Amino acid sequence: MNIGWYLAVSALVFCTGAAGVLTRRSPLVILLCLELMLNAANLALIAFSRMWGNGDGQIFAIIVMVVAACEVCIGLGLVVAIFRRRLPIDVDEMRELHG
Rank of each mutant, 00 (worst) to 15 (best):
D56Y: 12
M51T: 00
L31T: 05
R50S: 05
L78R: 11
L28V: 08
A8G: 09
L32T: 08
I74A: 14
L7R: 02
D56R: 15
G57D: 06
F83P: 14
G17M: 03
L28R: 15
N2Y: 06
I59Y: 12
I62C: 11
R86T: 00
Y6I: 03
A18W: 02
T16I: 13
L31K: 07
L36C: 09
A11K: 07
F14Y: 14
M37F: 02
I82Q: 07
D56G: 09
F60P: 01
L34D: 08
G20Y: 08
R50H: 09
F60E: 15
E71I: 00
G99M: 14
M51N: 08
P27N: 04
S49W: 03
P27V: 01
N54I: 00
L7D: 05
G17N: 00
V64H: 05
I30Q: 07
A19C: 15
G55N: 09
G53H: 01
E93M: 12
R86C: 01
M65G: 03
A8C: 13
A47T: 00
C73E: 14
M37A: 04
L32V: 07
I63Q: 09
L22I: 06
I46V: 11
L45E: 05
V29F: 15
G4W: 02
A19H: 12
V67Q: 03
M65Y: 11
G20N: 04
G53T: 01
Y6P: 05
L22N: 10
V80R: 15
A18F: 02
I74Y: 15
I46E: 00
A81V: 07
V21I: 13
L31C: 12
M37H: 05
L45N: 06
E96A: 07
L87H: 08
L76S: 09
E93S: 10
R95H: 11
R84K: 14
A69R: 04
L76G: 11
T23E: 11
V79A: 07
L22V: 05
L76D: 12
V79E: 04
R84H: 12
V9F: 08
A41I: 04
G20S: 04
L7Y: 03
P88H: 07
S49Y: 06
W52S: 09
S10F: 03
V72Q: 08
L34N: 13
R50F: 00
F48S: 10
L76W: 06
L12N: 03
E96M: 04
F83H: 15
I46D: 01
L34R: 09
G17D: 00
M94P: 07
D92Q: 13
N54L: 08
A47D: 01
I30Y: 08
L31A: 12
